[in-house]
Each structure stands twice: as structure tokens, then as C-alpha cells.
Design a protein around this nucleic acid. Structure first.
Length: 274
DNA sequence: ATCCGATGTCAAT
DNA sequence: TTGACCTCGGATC
């Protein structure tokens, strides 16, 4: 259940574990057997990540496109593989290591054209040093709520439900604010904060938006340690007191996911006087 | 033992 | 907007 930083980290681990050696590729579950046979014995030549999409390059026209979706997992172990338990879609293995992919939304051999189309479709990724002006432009050209736009992978690739809620909290922006009402400087600041937060998440291996550099001061209140392994201001804290102002954190489904915000720290803009 | 929701996306409506 | 995908950990009975 990853946001983009998890996929970037996964790519690093896979590269470190499997580079420069022949990799046995199989599909114990069977649903990837045909492609696995084509890849078996090749070397992992490259990895690439855009948003939440992982690309494993086993040579020209031998790229595997992986997307974990909501419940996929890709676990890497520095020990020889044992007979798989449960459904393993794709297994990579050497004499000393193995990696098991389970429950992905997508695991498929793709052409270079399909790779190009994927990159074209996705918006800038805060972890790819992409151009922030594309993000700012998309935001400011839309009447949609910013809380919706941040979940749109053509607007910002790799941002998920936690970073959406936390970035908006840190910026003090009400999630229902139309993108076009967000000033350029503020939009650029949201991007810069996403870059900082996601880089920190990549380095730490977990999300922490409270102790992150430049975070708003948590006046006298201890940060809440989130049960999911990170520390957050509002994510999944519906009904609990805001860590800054003690107002009750609200929640509402936006873009199909539960969005969380503090109505006091993130007030709706004043109505335009008539 | 069982239910439910989840760091996601797409196709069908 | 809704259901499907197809997995698991935590809450609840």
C-alpha cells in the first residue's frame, strides 16, 4: 500500500540486490509464467520509477511494468528462496537472494512504446526532479478542489492519500479550495514541500510529516505516532484533536478516498463580497 | 471467527 | 460514481 517514495526505495533495493548477475524469473502462481520464461536468466539492467509505477529493465524490449495497487507487495530478502507460500505472481531469485511480488494491480511485459506512453501520461514526480511549473499550471487551470487534484497522477505522480492530507495541512490550505484559486507562490510551495516530505520518506523508509524540516511548530503537544509507522498531523485522525489547535479533525471522501483536515488550521476562503 | 478498511487505479456506467 | 481487483492487519464479536 505504497505512495511513490516506497516504490523509489523498492527500485533501489532491487537494483542493489540483483544487479550484475543472472536472475531467475518465475511465476509460482502462474499468471506471469509466459513472460517470466522470456526473462529467466537475464540480468536486471536498469530500474526506473515514475510516480507509483516501477519499471524493471531486463534488456531492450524486455521491461516489466509493476504497479502494486492498493494491496500489492514486493518483498526482497537476502537469503535463498524457499517454496512459495500463497500466491506469488513474480519471483526474482539468485543463489543468495530472492524477491516475491504478490497481489499487484499490474505486472506485465511492456514495449518501449508503452513505457513512453506511461511517462507521457503521468505528471511530474516530486522524487524525479521534474519541472514544478507543470504542477503549478495544472493546479491553476482547474476548477477542481485541490484535495482532488493532488490525488490525480497526471497532476503530481507519486502523491497518495497521506501526502495529500499532510501537505495541505502543512500549507494551511482547505482541501475544497479550487485549484485556480491557489496563488502561484503557494502552489510552488506545495510542490517544494512535497519534494522535501517525499525525499525524507524515501530516506527514512517511512512517512514523517511532523518532524520534517520546516514543519509548523507543534506548540507544547507531543507529535502523535501514527500506527502505520509514520508520524502525521491529520491523516486518519478523524475526530481527534488537531495537534496544533486542538480543533477536531474532520474527514470526507474526496476522489474516492478518505481525506482528513483541520477546519481551523485549514479554513475555507472567505466568500467573495458581492 | 469474522468484518472492515486500506499508502491505488481502471473500466463500466 | 460504483464495482472490481484480490491481500492483510486490526478491530470486533
Amino acid at each position: 500500500m505504497p505512495e511513490g517514495h516506497v516504490i523509489h526505495r523498492l527500485a533501489q533495493v532491487l537494483e542493489a540486490t540483483f544487479a550484475d548477475t543472472a536472475v531467475r524469473v518465475s511465476s509460482p502462481q502462474g499468471r506471469f509464467s509466459e513472460a517470466a520464461a522470456l526473462l529467466d536468466g537475464r540480468q536486471l539492467r536498469s530500474t526506473d520509477v515514475h510516480g507509483k509505477h516501477l519499471l524493471l529493465g531486463f534488456g531492450p524490449e524486455h521491461t516489466v511494468h509493476v504497479h502494486l495497487g492498493l494491496y500489492g507487495r514486493f518483498e526482497v530478502h537476502d537469503r535463498p528462496a524457499e517454496p512459495p507460500r500463497g500466491a506469488v505472481r513474480m519471483r526474482l531469485q539468485t543463489a543468495t537472494a530472492h524477491a516475491d511480488l504478490r497481489g499487484p494491480a499490474r505486472c506485465a511485459l511492456v514495449t518501449s512504446d508503452e513505457v513512453a506512453a506511461l511517462h507521457d501520461r503521468l505528471g511530474p514526480d516530486p522524487l524525479r526532479d521534474d519541472d514544478p511549473t507543470r504542477f503549478v499550471d495544472r493546479l491553476q487551470r482547474s476548477a477542481s478542489a485541490v484535495g482532488r487534484l493532488l490525488m490525480d497522477q497526471t497532476v503530481a505522480a507519486g502523491v497518495g492519500n497521506i501526502y495529500r492530507a499532510e501537505a495541505l495541512f502543512r500549507a494551511g490550505i482547505n482541501p475544497m479550495t479550487p485549484g485556480r484559486e491557489i496563488p502561484t507562490v503557494l502552489a510552488a510551495e506545495i510542490w517544494a514541500d512535497l519534494v522535501a516530505l517525499m525525499r525524507l520518506g524515501l530516506a527514512n523508509g517511512r512517512i514523517d510529516t511532523v518532524r520534517a524540516e520546516h514543519a509548523p511548530q507543534v506548540s507544547g503537544r507531543p507529535p502523535r505516532v501514527d500506527a502505520h509507522g509514520g508520524e502525521v498531523y491529520v491523516y486518519r485522525r478523524a475526530g481527534q484533536p488537531c495537534l496544533i489547535c486542538a480543533h477536531e479533525v474532520r474527514t470526507e471522501v474526496v476522489a474516492g478516498r478518505n481525506l482528513f483536515w483541520c477546519p481551523r488550521c485549514q479554513p475555507a476562503a472567505d466568500p467573495v463580497p458581492t
